[in-house]
Design a protein around this nucleic acid. Sequence first.
DNA 1: AAATATACCTTGCATTACAAGGTAGCGTGC
DNA 2: GCACGCTACCTTGTAATGCAAGGTATATTT
Lengths: 109, 109
Amino acid sequence: MDDRLHDNWTTQLRKGLLEMCILNAIKPGRAYGYEIVRRLRQIEGLVIGEGTIYPILSRFHREGLVETHLEESSAGPARKYYELTDRGKKLLKKMSATWETIVRGVRNL
Amino acid sequence: MDDRLHDNWTTQLRKGLLEMCILNAIKPGRAYGYEIVRRLRQIEGLVIGEGTIYPILSRFHREGLVETHLEESSAGPARKYYELTDRGKKLLKKMSATWETIVRGVRNL
DNA sequence: AAATATACCTTGCATTACAAGGTAGCGTGC
DNA sequence: GCACGCTACCTTGTAATGCAAGGTATATTT
């Protein structure tokens, strides 16, 4: 009962949150789109598809948060790798801090 | 720097999250709109205005999550009080569980 | 009577997540 | 050779939300 409402709600809940998670997934070094999809799918409550991630990655690039370069793959088509720029790193740090504040705030009712 | 991006991001982050917080604010007993605005404003990172809350409360009522009744006030115009229905309580419980799962998932990278 | 605080509501805009669909490279089995 | 599946990228259209701005009205204070 109310699965419809709850599902819709989780979709809304992912807004914004996905950006932080994707930046976080790129942070350690570099990553390509398809890889990030597979990684984030393993996290409960964070389902994500390709139609969601590619527009986000494009936006990141447009906003100067990431740099990209193509690399050929021996197991399929070329991969577009993403790396965080300084701007991207700074924004992620700010996001993480805000996230922690909100999580704490919600916990305290 | 990047305040614009960060502010926009927090706006997106509030999507969905506000619903859970508002239901939570009503849960203890009853509450009216203007009161909820003042309460949630005190939580860091959860700024909220009247133009945000009234549409949400209307939706809650339309979806059968809350019941309302008017009560006169000696200190201003009449207040519209909201109370959770059983549906509302159940949905809030489900939301809280999902929220905890996501918070845990994000913490584990 | 003017200003302030309370209390409600609506309209229009900007932004996002996602399903659905499309393109293409590489390997396996028939 | 070719059909299938997996990898890997991208675009379009839809649905849903948050919010600034504006509007209405009551009660108190100056």
